[in-house]
Amino acid sequence: MPSDIIPVFDGHNDALLRLYESGQSNAEQSFLDGTTEGHIDLPRARKGGLAGGLFAIFPPPIAERGPNGKRIRPEDGAFPQLSQADALSSTLAMAAILMRLERAAQGRFAVCRTSGDIRSAMAVGALAAVFHIEGAEAIGPDLDLIDILYGAGLRSIGPVWSRSNIFGHGVPFRFPSSPDIGDGLTDAGKALVRKCNTLKMMVDLSHLNEKGFRDVQAISDAPLVASHSNVHAISEQSRNLTAWQLDAIRETGGLVGLNFAAGFLRPDGQSNADTDLEVMLRHLDALLEALGEDGVAFGSDFDGALMPQAIGDAAGLPNLLNAMEAHGYGRELVEKIAWRNWLGLLERTIG
């Protein structure tokens, strides 16, 4: 990447889902060589300073698609449950893509298991990928698959996406709405959190409902983390964080990654690419006030959401960093939000 660009470590992307759903036999090579599809590939990452991030495996819902190819969202914002068989098939397929990417990259892309691995990859210019699962439907109540996936590099897991499963209840996509929708974690979900604590695996709260969040707060001995969420007081999306949730995250020395999705940024809740960077700065200001300088980072949702056109894709990350500096954030604070806070958090969780 250009030497004058501040590196970014990003808390969430769905590039593996995009590659999986493309159906291309050479999907990994297109990621490495460059493509016009989606938001992230290796050339655009280097151009924009994207040095690494949590690469999510998200088992997609079985749902009808509209004329534009996008999934049709249910009217109540809640997707039906996904069978373990369907989730296992897609989860393993995306994990295979991740491993093939690392092999094909020949040192340009690294699956990282520790914070030290991330620092080493960044030092040599390799894109540092942390294996993350968003929605644990593939895992049975015995939790045995976690041990297998941990051996393959899994270091972070969101027990639910925005749908229910055997572990708990994901918060549906609703606006305006609080996250207080549905029951808390099941016994299996509580056991999953304890298992993650034992393995030093990060638990991601971004799609969990309010009661589930409270359950994790009561059980977990690790910092509370929402990898890609915003401030509910600015945008009343059910997926955004309320004041007490932000307080709970701060009390544990946790972290929130700013979600770039236009619909989670805007006060009107609209998914509109004509979204000014100013609203992103409003969320960052509020997160800094609630969490302090060490608790704020990025969780872009690249390849999983509509981006503000002022950013566009990974190559546009410097536009946001420049806006932060123009807003009055000093270089040290910009670097903390861009990458240092994520690395510090991961050092305290996965080691």
Rank of each mutant, 00 (worst) to 15 (best):
D221W: 01
D144A: 15
M122V: 03
G263Q: 09
L306T: 14
E134T: 01
P43K: 11
G304V: 00
G52S: 13
G344R: 15
E28M: 12
I133K: 05
N272K: 06
G116K: 11
T275L: 07
M99D: 14
G77T: 08
R73K: 15
G23Y: 14
N230E: 09
R266N: 12
F55S: 05
I72M: 10
N26A: 12
P308S: 03
D313A: 07
I148A: 15
A45W: 04
E332I: 06
R71S: 13
R46C: 11
N341R: 07
A126I: 02
I337L: 06
V256Y: 06
I62W: 06
R174F: 04
D313I: 00
D303Y: 13
L306W: 12
I219H: 00
R348S: 12
G295D: 09
E278Q: 12
S3A: 15
L54C: 15
V130T: 08
S227W: 08
A105C: 11
L92A: 08
P172S: 10
G182A: 12
L346A: 02
N197P: 06
A310I: 05
L246R: 04
Q245H: 09
R214G: 08
P59V: 09
A104T: 01
I57S: 04
R103E: 11
A27Y: 07
V216H: 00
V171P: 01
N68I: 03
A95C: 07
K200C: 11
I62D: 14
M307K: 01
D117V: 03
P267K: 10
T275G: 04
N165E: 05
R194H: 05
P179C: 07
R239V: 07
L42K: 08
D268G: 10
L333S: 09
A261S: 15
L149G: 03
E278W: 12
P43H: 15
D204W: 13
M202P: 02
R73L: 09
G257F: 11
I219P: 00
G182C: 07
A222R: 07
P172Y: 10
L185Y: 07
E210Y: 10
E347T: 10
G253T: 01
G107Q: 12
V256T: 01
I350A: 00
F298T: 03
N240K: 03
L205H: 02
D180K: 10
I311A: 11
A110Y: 04
A27I: 05
R108M: 08
E236R: 14
R113G: 10
G254V: 03
L208E: 12
P267S: 08
P172H: 13
E236Q: 14
S120W: 05
D303V: 04
S120I: 03
S220C: 02
G299T: 08
D187V: 12
A261L: 09
G212V: 05
L50Q: 08
E64Y: 13
